[in-house]
């Protein structure tokens, strides 16, 4: 290739330098702060998804069965009372299976609340587990009628109340997570607004010369907007990556069931984290633009 061809090729490749000076050290700290915020937002989002899944899971289990506690009559052993209750409920439409629990099974059921052992002297209630048809579960009223018809004195544990509690807890957890994510987004916007302010103050001479050379406000704002959007996207990738590592760890630890009592994370949650860099960039761009336009309005 001849000398002039080389010069020509180089000239064609030439691009003007960016109008704003390259990033300086301060940006490292800003990336860190935004990355931490993104991480927290991702954890909150995962928690919301997990809470939702947990609530659904509990609801499913609870609505699938009903516990009945038989009260023995004056001349009756508790075991016999349980047998009679089971017999009364067995024929009810919508009931698939009825099991009167033995003493040891009942103790096992109560163990989470009362602890192991020490139950020997206590009158452990006789429990009957009624499995309901998931498609057409028996209504509570039908169970009551059947028990009364056979003259069994029994208490049907009110799962509807539990279900309501679970539903409320799930809603609360979700609302909490959404609120937390919203707060974090606001904090991120505020951080970017501060950074834009600081960036424009540090680059005041450049901005002023561009302004006096005929740059439109919107064009100047775009410079800061693009810069902070890029920065937030990078921070979003870092933050979401961190959250993904932790979520994947939790998921792996919880085994094939994927049902860790506190945070049932699922592999299908992870793709949602991809939204984080996009959202972070969007929020940063919006905030930087707003702040820049506001400051530029003060320029004569």
């Amino acid at each position: 290739m001849s000398e002039s061809n080389l010069t020509e090729a180089r000239a064609r490749l030439w691009r003007p330098a960016p109008l704003l000076p390259k990033e300086d050290e301060r940006d490292g700290a800003l990336v860190f702060v935004v990355a931490v915020l993104c991480f927290l937002a991702c954890v909150a989002a995962l928690a919301a998804l997990a809470a939702d899944r947990a609530a659904t899971g509990w609801r499913g289990e609870l609505s699938g069965e009903v516990l009945v506690q038989a009260r023995p009559g004056p001349n009756e052993t508790p075991a016999l009372a349980a047998e009679r209750a089971a017999a009364a409920l067995a024929g009810v439409p919508g009931v698939t299976e009825v099991v009167a629990l033995g003493r040891s099974e009942a103790e096992a059921l109560l163990e989470p609340w009362l602890g192991r052992g020490g139950l020997e002297d206590l009158p452990v209630p006789q429990l009957v587990v009624v499995e309901l048809d998931r498609e057409a579960p028996a209504r509570r009223g039908a169970l009551d009628t059947a028990l009364q018809a056979d003259g069994v004195d029994a208490v049907i544990h009110d799962y509807e109340a539990y279900l309501g509690d679970v539903r409320r807890a799930g809603t609360l957890a979700r609302a909490g997570a959404v609120g937390t994510a919203a707060l974090i987004a606001c904090a991120a916007a505020a951080v970017i607004a501060f950074a834009t302010r600081a960036g424009m103050a540090a680059r005041r001479e450049v901005v002023e010369v561009l302004h006096l050379s005929g740059a439109e406000d919107a064009m100047l704002a775009r410079l800061f907007q693009a810069r902070f959007a890029k920065l937030a996207a990078v921070a979003g990738v870092i933050g979401a990556g961190g959250a993904a590592v932790i979520a994947a760890g939790l998921r792996a630890l919880s085994g094939s069931g994927g049902f860790l009592p506190i945070l049932p994370v699922d592999w299908s949650d992870l793709p949602w984290l991809l939204l984080c860099p996009l959202l972070a960039a969007f929020i940063a761009a919006l905030s930087a633009r707003r702040t820049a336009m506001e400051l530029l309005a003060g320029f004569e």
Partner: peptide, 29 residues
Amino acid sequence: RRRVGVVFQEFRLLDHLSAFDNAALPLRL
């Protein structure tokens, strides 16, 4: 402003841009 060229007393060149990019600035804007 683009119809008015200004030579500032203190030049006000942009330090991070080459002489070429400084000179080209108004056209770019």
